[in-house]
Amino acid sequence: MGTVAAVAGDDALARRLIAAGIWPGVVVELLGAAPFGDPLLFRLHGYRLALRRAEAERVSIVPVEGAP
């Protein structure tokens, strides 16, 4: 679990991530990964979003205290 700090960049991908609900302060939870560790599955705003590792690396987060 973590809280979104920022989305890096200002290209189509960054705008796509923002449209998907990745905004500063939003809590995201890592649910799991596909075979071989990519892509990753997250939960945010109550829905499930699949992101490639490279896409997820654009999003910096602050870990939530006490969460695994």
Binding site: D11, A12, L17, A20, Y47, L49, A50, L51
Partner: peptide, 11 residues
């Protein structure tokens, strides 16, 4: 090309 996944897994 900037291939993107960023896809919802619906309920």
């Amino acid at each position: 090309g900037g291939s993107m996944l960023a896809m919802e897994l619906p309920v």
